[in-house]
């Protein structure tokens, strides 16, 4: 039987705003399947986003949804989770939202290891505002504000998250659609701050400027550059040149923030 996405979508809120060929919709379907697999209750689950095309996702989802300010999703979500630790809190957003203006909130959420899942849709560009370069735009690429090629080096989101203290870090692509839900489900089940980066595409503002002839070509590129971590173990550095690792990249057990704060409450009550 076909999977019933409608069960988790808000009636009357579709069609979505995304362009034909945009990867964000593929990611949303993956998220829905993951939520279904984890059996998350709608009333007890908050989906929080910043601003951008990717950040429009919560509006379509039938949960407690919070579309905040550009880059601030992690900070708003931290307030929700701290105040009601029993809620499941999922953050979603674009690469610009999460790693430029929201970079500070992102690394501190990682550092606290607060039990939330952050889904970053990395299309290497600021889509919503018409294709300016983001901290994840490859060096040399064309954006509306890099007409001569991008001079900036790009972030590796996964390394950033691991370095900042996240305890579950995974990467997938919009091409490998059936893997997305598995990665997100594992992230949701992980106790601590989990980051799932999904490489997707923005044909409208990135593809057309960077000589991709079609969405299919953009998807094929994702297929070609992705190497599962297991397979990478057997590959030489030369073979891995220009490739991107996918799968669960990092997993660790560390004290979780709301749990640690529960101990603060116990100590404070004892100190009375």
């Amino acid at each position: 039987m076909a999977f019933d996405y409608d069960k988790y979508l808000r009636p009357g809120k579709l069609p979505h705003i995304w362009c034909p060929g945009c990867g964000h919709g593929i990611v949303m379907k993956g998220l829905i399947r993951a939520i279904d697999a984890c059996g998350l209750e709608k009333n007890n689950t908050a989906i929080v986003s910043g601003i951008g095309c990717a950040s429009r996702l919560p509006g379509y989802m039938d949960f407690c949804t919070l579309h905040t300010a550009h880059g601030r999703a992690a900070a708003f979500a931290t307030g929700v989770k701290m105040a009601k630790p029993e809620m499941n809190v999922i953050l979603v957003g674009g690469d610009g939202d999460g790693t430029a203006i929201g970079g500070n909130h992102f690394i501190h959420a990682c550092r606290r290891n607060i039990d939330m899942t952050y889904l970053i849709m990395n299309n290497n560009i600021y889509g919503m505002t018409g294709g300016q370069f983001s901290p994840c735009t490859p060096t040399g690429a064309k954006a509306s504000t890099t007409p001569y090629g991008n001079p900036d080096p790009a972030f590796d989101i996964a390394k950033l998250a691991i370095g900042a203290g996240a305890t579950f870090v995974a990467r997938g692509t919009a091409y490998h659609a059936t893997q997305i839900d598995k990665l997100i489900a594992e992230a949701i089940q992980h106790k601590g701050f989990s980051v799932v980066e999904i490489l997707d595409d923005c044909p409208t503002t990135y593809g057309r400027r960077n000589k991709f002839k079609s969405v299919i070509e953009m998807m094929n590129r994702l297929k070609e550059i992705a190497v599962p971590v297991k397979a990478a173990e057997k590959m030489s550095p030369e073979q891995l040149e220009g490739k991107i690792l996918t799968g669960v990249l990092y997993k660790a057990e560390k004290p979780e923030y709301t749990g640690e704060y529960a101990k603060v409450i116990e100590r404070a009550k004892g100190a009375k």
């Binding site: 407690c64 919070l66 909130h105 100590r267």
Partner: peptide, 26 residues
């Protein structure tokens, strides 16, 4: 914390304001 409430020192004032709005929504 003596009252079971929550205190969080955020990474900056933007985050602090965001966190209290998130908490108020609960």
């Amino acid at each position: 914390p003596k009252l079971g409430g929550k205190f969080i020192q955020m990474e900056d004032e933007i985050g602090a304001m965001a966190a209290i709005i998130g908490a108020s929504l609960t």
